[in-house]
């Protein structure tokens, strides 16, 4: 009875980056970190073996949320904060579609905070890319829920008073099954993260540190400048010891109170270092709490666990119900009550 057009799928193997670019002029500010993210997504999708017509990009409101206009896929630029909810409807109805959510720190963590945490806990198979530039860009420079305390902006001339979210900690607290972080400038790593998100069964979320060169330039400079990056970037690799530094000479250990400490690897030996495990919730949370400047900033996959997705279980319930009560019609349902005849 399904009315969906049953047309042959296009050849996913023949897709290239160009197939994902639209004819619309990209209108982000010159130098914006969004350009790099768009490029990496457009580079990665053709490698995933998915027909272009099966991609859906849903966004909310904000600079990042213009993203779908530049992707030649199905797309919707929805309303502020609601993209995860819109995308959940797409995915619940059509689990076979590859549904991506594009959002920012204001859209996802402020006005849309409720939808974000529920999309994560529900594990409904969305791929969420959160552009975090720690500022409101499209409304021209107010502080955001990830701005640091004391930040002076148009709406906080004496410095902001609210404590920021730690987005990764929040995502973990919301029971997300895949949580990762990447940098806008690290093309290769970003592509790798997008690829891993796509392969994940449930909801996957990626926080990208993205530079807003107009309203918050250099927010992540310590992590993106060639000189300082090696001292501050901790690349997470499953099963590998936590090491960083220009010569990979530093590492992370736990003290007896389970507090992380930065050590010289030579002094303690590599065996003493914490070893990354994407399936260990305690470790994932601990890593999310490694915050600049006291600690290096972890990038990569904090958590990746297997848990049946909502959309898969949703479909299974429907199939199961159909098996239990096969061949029923609406007429049957209407008459599934005490029916009497008036002569």
């Amino acid at each position: 009875m399904s009315k969906y057009p049953n047309l042959p799928a296009t050849d996913a193997a023949a897709l290239t980056r160009k197939d994902f670019a639209t004819d619309q002029d990209v209108r982000w500010c010159p130098g914006c970190g969004d350009y790099s993210i768009l490029a990496q997504v457009q580079r990665t999708l053709p490698t995933l073996g998915i027909p272009r017509e099966d991609y859906v990009f849903i966004s909310g409101i904000g600079c990042s949320s213009r993203f779908p206009y530049y992707m030649d896929t199905y797309g919707m630029h929805s309303i502020h904060g609601r993209a995860p909810a819109v995308a959940s409807g797409v995915k619940a109805l059509r689990p076979e579609l590859n549904v991506w959510v594009i959002t920012g720190d204001g859209d996802a963590l402020s006005i849309g905070g409720n939808h974000l945490i529920h999309a994560l806990r529900r594990n409904i198979g969305l791929k969420i890319i959160l552009f975090n530039n720690r500022i409101y860009g499209l409304t021209k420079g107010q502080y955001s829920p990830t701005s640091e305390v004391g930040k002076r902006t148009k709406s906080t001339p004496m410095g902001s008073l609210d404590y920021p979210f730690n987005p990764i900690s929040l995502m973990l607290g919301a029971e997300a099954t895949f949580v990762a972080r990447a940098l806008d400038i690290d093309a290769k790593h970003l592509q790798e993260m997008v690829t891993r998100m796509a392969a994940h069964e449930g909801t996957a979320i990626l926080e990208i540190y993205q530079n807003c060169n107009i309203f918050n330039d250099g927010a992540f400079a310590y992590l993106t400048d060639r000189q300082t990056r090696p001292q501050h970037e901790l690349k997470l690799e499953h099963g590998k010891p936590l090491r960083f530094g220009p010569k990979n000479e530093k590492g992370i250990v736990l003290d007896r109170q389970m507090r992380p400490q930065v050590v010289e690897v030579e002094a303690v030996g590599e065996d003493a270092l914490l070893v990354h495990d994407e399936t260990n919730p305690t470790l994932s949370y601990l890593l999310s709490q490694l915050v600049h400047p006291d600690f290096p900033t972890p990038v990569g996959v904090f958590r990746s666990i297997e848990r049946p997705s909502y959309d898969a279980m949703f479909t299974a319930q429907i199939e199961d119900a159909k098996k239990r009560k096969p061949g029923k019609t609406v007429q049957d349902l209407i008459e599934d009550a005490h029916v009497w005849t008036v002569e």
């Binding site: 859906v56 849903i58 919707m76 609601r82 819109v86 959940s88 409807g89 109805l93 059509r94």
Partner: peptide, 10 residues
């Protein structure tokens, strides 16, 4: 919003 997503999806 979820209903709008479902409408978009057919």
């Amino acid at each position: 919003a979820s209903a709008i997503g479902a409408a978009f999806a057919g």
